[in-house]
Design a protein around this nucleic acid. Sequence first.
DNA 1: ATGGTAGGATTCCTA
Length: 255
Amino acid sequence: MRIATWNVNSIRARQPLVVEWLKTTEPDVLCLQETKVVDDDFPTEDLQRLGYAVEMAGQKTYNGVAIASRLPMSDVSVGLHDDDEDAEKRFIAATIDGVRVMTAYVPNGKSVDSPDFPRKLAWLARLRQTLDQGATAEGDVLLCGDFNVAPEARDVHDPKRLEGQILFHPDERAALAKVLDFGLVDAFRIHEEAPKHYSWWDYRGPMLRRNLGLRIDFIFLTKSLAARSGRCWIDKDVRGQNKPSDHAPVIVDLE
DNA sequence: ATGGTAGGATTCCTA
């Protein structure tokens, strides 16, 4: 089973690129973040034409997540365990071929001195609680998405300058580590130790051209799935195509 | 010394 995650930064703006990418990459499952659209305006038919059903949790203008799958989906669940009715749409889960697939769009936090920063930390703590309440580390659980945190120095292009800034602050690294303490491993790091692999490059300036990015998009696996993981890679090429998202897809093959 | 671009809804917010 091939599973991918991609922050598309608007599914409507990215629709041609996503369709072409699905045709060439042929994942069984594509988890999407920042769809930025209400469910009625999601380009569902364009994905159905390629054989994918879509489960979504959308909202106007911001956020929005979805799971597109060409294998049957069951037990769809939207939101964190204690989300209010009007909570931002940042989390959706479904069971696919025995795997509990969860995808998250973690709050960015804006800056470390913003009120959004403690809210980001609290959201990650609530994500851990959602895992504890709805899954077990002994099961086949895959948690993927845009986590807006780079876990290690090798995941950022300038760790000295970026240390303590948003996306690379010790408090958010600790909050992410607590999520992983549920019993998850980073699929990309199973087979790749090297630095300079990133999943996001700012649109502004020469960031992509100089490969000045951050690795903030992940596929996390429980032990049983990690044992089944083949290749895991970041499709950087699609970041350089016409009208790209600022994020690249991350893909894993499970045996 | 704090730029720059992109998307979406409306002269600004978020990333």
